[in-house]
Design a protein around this nucleic acid. Structure first.
Lengths: 179, 179
DNA sequence: CAGAGTTTGTTGAACACTCAATTGACTATC
DNA sequence: GATAGTCAATTGAGTGTTCAACAAACTCTG
């Protein structure tokens, strides 16, 4: 909003950038709220919890250290801690102590959790396809990938969500596959 | 996650689409959480509230019908109702009755609200620039605009956030400018 | 104009997230 | 081997969001 206040040296966005920023916000909210609503309605799983289940399902032994899991699901430690507590109540995740670092905790996906994920996945994937991939061309998919990768590069500047990649014992360092 | 359960007819995402979807989620969370944190930290304004203030600041008489404002800020009516209540407590917004429709309410930005917005805008815009526009090329800006516009087309399928575009008296139908 | 259906906007409860503070355990330094 | 500093993870308070239910006003139809 140029000409709004005493701004002198502020580099405001160009009109084009403003339009793009607006389009970005509307697009993201539209897409995410649709996907979240479908998942919640049809499977009773908040999207943030779903992401945690997916990451665990891809990990060796279906378990991960809390810090590692927080980073993998782009979540703060606090948020993950609360979320895992809820998932534990549902019987979908269990906590295990780390043998080599007594501060450490592993979260492991239970069979019930895996079953819940398997039950929720088809309709969720279908929704993602309808809301995103059916609406853009293959070329745009590649463009989107490049853009989002560039945006994510460097990560969140100072948040405590950033953890050291090394953990308790030898891990696969984030080389899991699907989602 | 192909091969996960009895899925038979489910059209899973391709490996490329999965990577893009993941990149999208990481990029969006990274960008939005950075922008939200900056705004909250430096100005004490939640991002959702900031958006409401911006929409109002662009509207004629700095006021809008609640439904219209909900749609403009891609918010549910419930969420907006709560948000405006908080903004009213801060003295940044006031409610006015609609003369021609006694169900109707207008939200109007107060001078204090406008001042708060003006104070918050520079550093916020700077953050958006650093987190988004400094990281992608001008060509990618155009690509992003096209992609996000395509994603947003059609809007949220069934949510109550979608309101009728017409309202109380003659409005500008969403032709406001900056952000 | 009576009644059904729709629209506007609010409310309260349940739930999720953020922030700051805290505990317990590891690590480096002297 | 004490001490200070860091790291992993949790906790609780405060705040924001969602969902379903609701009240009041408008509109359409007969």
């Amino acid at each position: 909003m140029p000409g709004m206040a005493a701004d002198s040296e502020v580099r405001w966005l160009t009109a084009e950038d403003q339009r793009t920023w607006r389009a970005f916000l509307v697009g993201v909210v539209t897409l995410l709220s649709t996907v979240e609503a479908q998942l919640q309605r049809d499977s009773g799983i908040p999207f943030g919890y779903y992401e945690i289940l997916v990451r665990l399902s891809e990990a060796p032994d279906r378990s991960m250290r809390m810090s590692q899991l927080a980073e993998a699901s782009t979540s703060s430690k606090s948020r993950l801690s609360h979320a895992v507590a809820r998932l534990e109540e549902r019987g979908w995740v269990e906590r295990l102590d780390c043998e080599t670092d007594r501060r450490g905790q592993f979260a492991r996906l239970t069979d019930a959790g895996f079953a819940a994920l398997a039950a929720a996945a088809p309709s969720h994937v279908e929704q993602v396809r309808r809301s995103l991939f059916d609406r853009i061309t293959p070329e745009q998919v590649r463009q989107l990938d490049a853009i989002m990768t560039a945006i994510a590069a460097g990560g969140v500047p100072d948040a405590e969500a950033i953890g050291c990649p090394l953990a308790c014992d030898g891990e696969t360092d984030g080389t899991a596959e699907a989602g």
